[in-house]
Nucleic acid binder design. Sequence first.
DNA 1: GTTATATTTGTAATCGTTTACAATTTAATT
DNA 2: AATTAAATTGTAAACGATTACAAATATAAC
Lengths: 340, 340
Amino acid sequence: MAQIKDVAKQAGVSVASVSRVMAGHAGVSEATRQRVLEAVQALDYRPDLAARRLRSRRTDTIGLIVSDIRNPFFTEVSRAVEDVAYQNRMRVILCNADEDPEKEALYLDLMRDENVSGVILSPTLPTLARFHPSDYSFPVVLIDRCDRDTAADAVVLDNVDSAYRLTSRLIERGHRRIAFIYGATSATGQQRHEGYVSAMATHGLETLAKAVPATVDAARAAAGEWVGRRPLPDALAGSNGLILLGLIEALREAHLRFPEQIALAGFDDLPWTHLVEPGITVIAQPTYDIGQAAIELLLQRIAHPTQSVRRVVLRGELRERGSSAMRKQAGSGTKATVEG
Amino acid sequence: MAQIKDVAKQAGVSVASVSRVMAGHAGVSEATRQRVLEAVQALDYRPDLAARRLRSRRTDTIGLIVSDIRNPFFTEVSRAVEDVAYQNRMRVILCNADEDPEKEALYLDLMRDENVSGVILSPTLPTLARFHPSDYSFPVVLIDRCDRDTAADAVVLDNVDSAYRLTSRLIERGHRRIAFIYGATSATGQQRHEGYVSAMATHGLETLAKAVPATVDAARAAAGEWVGRRPLPDALAGSNGLILLGLIEALREAHLRFPEQIALAGFDDLPWTHLVEPGITVIAQPTYDIGQAAIELLLQRIAHPTQSVRRVVLRGELRERGSSAMRKQAGSGTKATVEG
DNA sequence: GTTATATTTGTAATCGTTTACAATTTAATT
DNA sequence: AATTAAATTGTAAACGATTACAAATATAAC
C-alpha cells in the first residue's frame, strides 16, 4: 500500500501538501494540487483512516442506535440516515438495542470508545427518563421517543395529535366503546394513549385502555380478553404495528370479522395493512423524513455545538381504509355476509 | 481522558504491561494484572481505538453489505451477524446497497478504506458474475446469492430444491397450469426458477414463467397479464416476498379470490403471510441461522486464511397454508362463497 | 550455591497521518 | 527596486497505542 510519503515523493512535494490536497484544505496552489492528484491516481493512494483519526481526533462517523431493527419504521429511518450521512462524507455505525436498556447502554459506551462525531438514538423508557445530553461526550439527537420536557434535540411524530385524530375518526364513524391497547415500554405508547384519552374525553366517552409490553403476543393476549367478554367493544385500536398485528390475530382466533363485528385501527402503515381485507385504517409515519430530519439536525449540531436545542415534530397521516367503517353497515367490499 | 501512561503511572508499572493486560495477552503476573485493573477502574481508562488500530493494523471490524435493508430477510440476518460479532468483540458496519451495483462497489471500496477484517456480502448479479475473492484485500463470505461455480465461502438456501418442493406441492394439490414469476436481477430468482422448471418437467407439465425486476409493482404488472387472460392459470407462485406481495395485489385488483379461483404460493414467511386469509403457503427461510452461519464462517476464515472454501446450504421449510388448497373445492375457512 | 531456563517487566521504536510553525516564494504596494 | 503583505510550502512534532527486544527477576535442575 502506498503511503503519503510515497505520493509526496512521486509528486515532488512535501507530505504536508499531499495531506492538504487530500483533506480539501485551502492554501495549496492549483499546480501542486494537480501534481498531487496525479500521483495519487498513479499510486492508487488511499489515506489510512486509523492514522488520520488518531492524529486529527475526528472520526467523521455517526452512530445510529435503533430500538428494534425488525421494525420497518427503523429500517426506513436508517436508510435515510445512511443516505444523508454518506452524502456528507460521514460513516454510520448501526446498532440494534432490541429494546434492551442494557444493550443500549453497551452501545452508547461503544460510541464513546469509537469517538463518534454524534449519535442518533431512539431510547428505551429508562434511558429516556434519565436522559441528559451533557452525560455524553458526543451530541445526541433523539428520534421517535422523547418526553415533552426532555431538553434534547429530537425528531418525533405528533403522537398525541395523531392518536387524537385516529380515535376521533373512529368516533365519527359511529363507534363508541373503543378499546385502546398500547405499548407500556415506550414514550410513544404513552403519548398515543394520551391522545386517545383526550379524544374520548372530548366526546364524553368512557376509556377502555390497556398497557402491554410492545409485542405481538402480549397484544394478542390483551385483545383476547376484550373480545372474549360481552358486550364487545365497538372498535379496537393499537398504538403501533406490532400491537396491531396482535389485535388482528386475536380477532382471527375469536372468529370475529372486521369491520362488521368490530372495527380496527392503529399506527404504522406496514406493507400488509392494505392487504388484509378490507384494509386497515392507520396513522402512517413519514419514516424517511424522520431519519432525514434527524441526521440533518445532528450535522447542524456537530457544526454548531452551542446552538439552541431544536425539536422537529412531524405530522402523522391518517389513512382510512375499510377496517374503521361505520357500524351496523354491510362491508362495502367483496364480502357478502353481514354481521355474524 | 486518561491515557495508557497515566494508568501505568498510577499502577506503578510500564505502559507495556498495561497494554498487555488490556489486550488480554499472556505473560503478565496476576499481581500486576490486578494493580493495572484497579488503576484502569480508578481512572476510567478506555484504550483509544484509533491509536490501537493504527499500531496493530487490525480493526476487529467486519462489514455487512446487504442488498436491501427493507427486506425483512436482511434485517433478521443482520441481527444474527451483530449478535455473534459483538460476542466475539467485533464491530459491525452495516451498509445498504439498495440493489444498486454502483452503491455496492462504493461500499466495498469503503471496506477497504476501513481496513475491515472481513465482509459479509449479498451481491447484486453483476458483482456476483465477476466475483473473485482474490480481488479483495479482505476475506468475503457471500450470503443469499451465489452461483454454483463461485469459488467463495458462502451461506445460501437450497433454492433449487425449495422451489422444487413448493412447486411439487402445488402439483400434488391438483394444480396444473402454474405460473411462476421470479426476480430477474438476483441469483436466487434464477435458481428458484430452475427448481420450478425442474418440478414442472418431472410431472410433464408446461411451464409458464416470467422474469421481472424484483419489485412489488413489476410483479403486480406481470401477474396482471396472467390473470387478465383466459384460461386463468390454476396457481401463481412468486420467487420472493416482494413479488408475492405484487401477486396478491394483482389478484385483489382483478377481484380474484384465493384459493377458490386461483391458488397462490411463494417464498419468505413474512409477518403478514398468515394474516391474509386463508394464509399463504410459503417456503420459510431460516434467516437468523443464515446470518449466524455467515459470521461464524467469516470468523473462521479470518482465523485461518488458507483453509479450503466452504459453502453452507440451509434448507427452506415448506409452510402450507390455505392459499395452495386443492382446486374445485370450497374454501375450508370462514368464507361462504364458492368459485366466482 | 551455581547454572540454566522460564517468566515477567521495561525501554523505545513504530504505525501513517495531521498540523503548528517557520521558511520560502509570489504578488502587491509604494 | 525596495518594502510589505499574502500565499504557498516544508520540517518536524505530535496523536496514543502496540510490540520487538533487551533486561531483570523468579523458578528449576543439578
